[in-house]
Amino acid sequence: MSADVTLEDVRKDARAEEPEEQIDLAAVDKIIDSLTEMKGMLIPVLQNVQNVYGYVPEEAANSVADGLGLYRSQVYGVLTFYTQFHLSPRGRHIIRACSGTACHVRGGKTVISKLESKLGIGHGETTDDMFASFEKVACLGACGLAPVIMIDIDAHGQLDSLKAERILDNLREMDRMKRGE
């Protein structure tokens, strides 16, 4: 066999993609201990883990699998199946823009492209400074306010690209003040 790729190469490629941060897993162990009494607790455990870290780090997913007696690939299947789980760190603010029918016909598309160009990221991505993550969602259930976006837990309706820009500027200002910059 001509060994064009070695196991070492494959592992090295995988390592290159990883952040080198060390993560304290004490919280994960505590969550597992408090929730393993019942069978079928994988999703609540993962939700709690995500509440602590803001996402589900790989090491935490490992610990969850080992702690619940599941295979890692099974945990990964659940993590990727549900959009509520995130495998990489997310921004301090989550911006969700509606791309449902009502918002679309009332100009949601321009709102979305404004937000994307202003943030410099696309769907499912996070800005480099961890300021915000951006997501397009199917419907926010507020069609009367179309076009609508949500920033964290607040809804902002009846937008156009100008209003969206202003909201984003305000958000950044607030973020700066909060971080004392």
């Binding site: 592992r11 490629d13 995988a14 997913a61 690939s73 099974q74 990964y76 299947g77 990727t80 199946f81």
Partner: peptide, 22 residues
């Protein structure tokens, strides 16, 4: 061994190891 699993869903479903690692 259960090294392989199905991840993501619908048309995007793929087969692979944990976190798509080696």
């Amino acid at each position: 061994v259960t090294a392989l699993g199905m991840s993501y869903r619908g048309a995007a479903t793929v087969v692979g190891p944990f976190m798509d690692k080696p």
